[in-house]
Amino acid sequence: MGEPAVSAQGLTKCFGAVCACQGIDLTVAPGEIVGLVGPDGAGKTTAFRMLCGILPPDHGTARVAGYDVVTQSEAVKARIGYLPQRFSLHRDLTIDENIQYVAELYTVPRDEWQSRREELLEMTYLAPFRRRLAGRLSGGMRQKLALVCALVHRPEVLFLDEPTTGVDPVSRRDFWKLLHDLPRQGVTMVISTPYMDEAARCNRLAFMYAGQVLATDTPDNLRRQLPGELMQVRCRPQREAREALKRCSAVRSVEVFGDRLHVLFHGTADPMLCERLLADAGVECLEQQPVEPSLEDVFMSLVSEHGLTATATGNGL
């Protein structure tokens, strides 16, 4: 395989005393979907802006679609699509006109963007609404239109910054079906998401925290990384159970998952111990079983290793 679609080494950016990104390394192979997952202020948006050639890094280098993001930022911009968190469509233009507008900004030849537009409208099922003003579209449709606009110049790499935030589950599903088809069309994707079920769909993930990449791997390998075994416990009252389990030295952490608790042990899970601790605390145990760790378990475990308060002093972008 040739050059990676994205390769970044030691990307660093500070705003005054606040370092939004501290030495980010990231490699994305052509056709991959790579997810950036992390809390607010982890540096995801800053990393995106540097990779898109919008924001020059203080230190470090990055090449995207074969070009240097600092010295060849115009060439980078021509070869990528960027869907920012708050995308701006022209509300007073129709779907058709919005696409034309963006295509012309990218100086795509007329006959090329016209056929591309048909193709994208068909793919997103937006064709019947093409003469509707963007300002009158539903949230899900606006987001599809933003995707179409980001794809009209056939970018090699697509950056999506939390594209499904605030979008209902039906639209979210439809949107992901569209995304999954893109690698076959030769598009590489870097996507940030706060949702672990979306993270699981990526080929590889980078868990970010406080400006650093804590771990990069496939979702499966990340799930295997969890130190210790996990028990799922359904009991009541839950709050007392949480406190009792947290006090035990064999227990690494206790997290709430809806009406269940996930109890992570330092080593082998011990259901007898669990039962005894709960009985001693006067908690009724309804059900307990060993479970495979979810990505959220792994993420929580990684973050608690690195301490929680740093998010507060992170950037406020």
Binding site: V37, G38, P39, D40, E255, V256, M300
Partner: peptide, 12 residues
Amino acid sequence: EPTSGVDPLTRR
């Protein structure tokens, strides 16, 4: 929609 646009830690 208190958790719209909110990261996993804050959501939790």
